[in-house]
């Protein structure tokens, strides 16, 4: 942004306003803002892609698990097959609850009194863990969506400041002098919006998906805990019969 360059540019051949020259001619701070916003955009899109893939996988896994769970097969067999490999979402809830159940039965004579409460606790914890896994990095999207335009605006303000200073220095207000500086400055805002708009849209979409899968997992946890509590009651009754 040397005034002399601008003046010569104004007098000489028309100033080149390609994307690269716009970036290269910008002030250091504006360059930093542009690069930062570009990085944020890359990051946001990476998160968006990863999360989209994760959510589709989670959804399909939940569908598959529910199908297996309600197929009428023995829960014991299901547990055996699932506990061998790392699980996701509902399967992990099921595995965690079954593990707690089995552990309670392994120590014979251990009280069934707290088992129900324990299972529910375990289910809550594993739901929270799953949600946290799904929700992670969504805050980055929210931050970029809200801060991106401001950062871009900062770059624009800075660029316009420098371009006005160059006007004052060159004492020339012709559009050829003013336009390149303002184009550079506006480029920063453009990048900021370029990063922020998709981030905002996908943050809302992904947040909705997280909420839906959370609701789905909680409903499954309630159903499963009710099944287990029925089993517990049944077990307690049989124990009482045996004792009698």
């Amino acid at each position: 942004m040397n005034p002399a360059e601008i003046a010569s540019g104004a007098l000489g051949a028309p100033v080149e306003v390609s994307l690269w020259s716009m970036f290269w001619g910008a002030h250091f701070v504006v360059k930093l803002v542009m690069l930062g916003l570009l990085g944020a955009s890359v990051w946001c899109w990476a998160i968006i892609i990863n999360k989209s893939i994760l959510f589709t996988r989670t959804n399909s896994a939940m569908d598959k698990f529910e199908e297996a769970f309600w197929s009428g097969n023995s829960l014991e067999e299901l547990y055996q097959s699932l506990s061998a490999k790392p699980t996701t979402a509902m399967a992990s809830l099921f595995v965690a609850a079954m593990r707690e159940w089995k552990r309670s039965f392994a120590n014979a004579g251990s009280a069934f009194m707290g088992l129900q409460a324990r299972i529910e606790k375990v289910l809550d914890v594993s739901i929270a863990r799953e949600i946290e896994r799904l929700e992670s990095q969504l805050l980055v999207l929210a931050s970029v969506a809200s801060a991106g335009p401001f950062v871009g605006l900062f770059g624009t303000v800075w660029g316009i400041m420098t371009s006005f200073r160059s006007i004052a220095a060159s004492k020339n207000t012709s559009l050829a002098v003013v336009a390149p500086g303002i184009a550079e400055a506006l480029f920063a805002t453009a990048i900021g919006l370029f990063a922020a708009i998709p981030a905002l849209i996908f943050y809302n979409i992904l947040q909705g998906k997280v909420a839906r899968s959370q609701a789905r997992m909680e409903s499954f946890a309630d159903e499963f805990s009710s099944i287990l509590s029925r089993q517990i009651d049944h077990h307690v009754a049989s124990e009482r019969d045996r004792a009698a």
Binding site: L19, V42, W45, I48, I53
Partner: peptide, 26 residues
């Protein structure tokens, strides 16, 4: 497992390239 970063980086590079070409002549 997380192809997002690569995909995003590539996509941005492509977009920048297109922008460079399209902005080459105002």
């Amino acid at each position: 497992s997380e192809p997002g970063y690569v995909a995003s980086g590539l996509a941005h590079a492509a977009v920048l390239l297109v922008a460079l070409v399209s902005f080459a002549d105002a």
